[in-house]
Design a binder for these strands. Structure first.
Lengths: 134, 134
DNA sequence: TATACTGTATTAAGTAGCTAATACAGTAAT
DNA sequence: ATTACTGTATTAGCTACTTAATACAGTATA
């Protein structure tokens, strides 16, 4: 597991941790039941206070993505695949809802909005693919 | 001009003011050159400090959406139509960018994402049309 | 000039959020 | 029990942001 923190981005550390771990679990880079780095280990790696990591882990547990066992460690939760698909779709839908509302309010036609989305999708998709050639 | 403030939403008052006025200008509900409520008038209506409104107005001026004239009042700026179109597209693009990144990260195919957007668009579009029968 | 409106610069108080220090609590193996 | 790991509750300090109080400044009109 590799995480990177940008201390100057303005985004709180614990949120950066959450987003990256959530991303890894959703993308299947972290397997079910797999143990994650301990609070202190990750805190040392990121030069951050252990409580900051603990807070991130706690919120990930609320999301149902990890399971904390005091005295033992932290593990990627066993998320049923169909539930994972459902969760991902819901997260995306929330963002798309905002986009749809905005487009309608601004009188931007559906076709135009779809084209914009497609163009952006391809942009980030190609970046991801080229980066994965390592 | 009618604004509504939710004091319990967690969204700062001045931001709510900005968003609603920006929305009204972009949607064409506020005409070019039209005078807006004075700082103190709007502040009284919303039960808020005048400086809070002044701050919102100042930021709207930075966006180029309004023009402040000390001693006179605040007016909807004369925005060239093509510039308005451009601005609207940019605002929408920022939201769609988030959606695209999320979809790619989650491995949700482009087709699926576009369908979700189309469905949501139609949902809100029909609502708007039916509401405009007043 | 006087008045009655406009908007505003400065300052301060209040609040919420983030991070960290400390001391504590659970687990497993010896 | 001891050791050496796990995670955590409490507390406190810091910072950034938001809001408000006050006094000030520009404009138009009589």
């Amino acid at each position: 597991m590799l995480l990177e923190i940008d201390h100057h981005s303005g985004v709180p550390i614990y949120r950066q941790v959450i987003e990256q771990i959530r991303q890894q679990i959703m993308a299947g880079q972290l397997s079910e039941g797999e143990q994650l780095m301990s609070v202190r280990e990750l805190a040392a790696q990121l030069h951050v206070n252990p409580m900051t990591i603990s807070k991130a882990y706690a919120l990930l547990e609320v999301e149902g993505l990890v399971e904390r066992r005091r005295g033992v460690g932290l593990f990627a939760a066993r998320v049923r695949k169909d539930k994972k698909v459902h969760t991902k779709a819901k997260l995306l839908e929330e963002i798309l809802r905002k986009a749809a509302v905005t487009a309608v309010q601004f009188g931007i036609p559906e076709e135009k909005a779809r084209e914009m989305l497609a163009k952006l999708y391809r942009k980030y998709d190609s970046r991801t693919r080229s980066h994965s050639n390592e």
